[in-house]
Amino acid sequence: MISISINGATQQFAAPLNVAALIEHMQLGNKRIAVECNGEIVPRSMYASHVLNDGDKLEIVVAVGGG
């Protein structure tokens, strides 16, 4: 089991997975998002190759209304 913090909430996964698989799992595939892992941007082109490990801290953001 590995634990990943996603937007501040910890989630458990059976095995390490890549960012693309996580996005699919979270049903965010059709959303316009950006991802940061441990303070560093994960570019869209790296989703399939960036493997998440135990203890990683992920931020997944969207655009919302603001001034």
Partner: peptide
């Protein structure tokens, strides 16, 4: 202007987006 916020995990995936 737009703001950047955490995606609401587990919400309706088809909910419209500001963009």
């Amino acid at each position: 202007t737009i703001a950047i916020r955490r995606s609401n995990i587990g919400q309706n995936p088809n909910e419209p987006n500001l963009l």
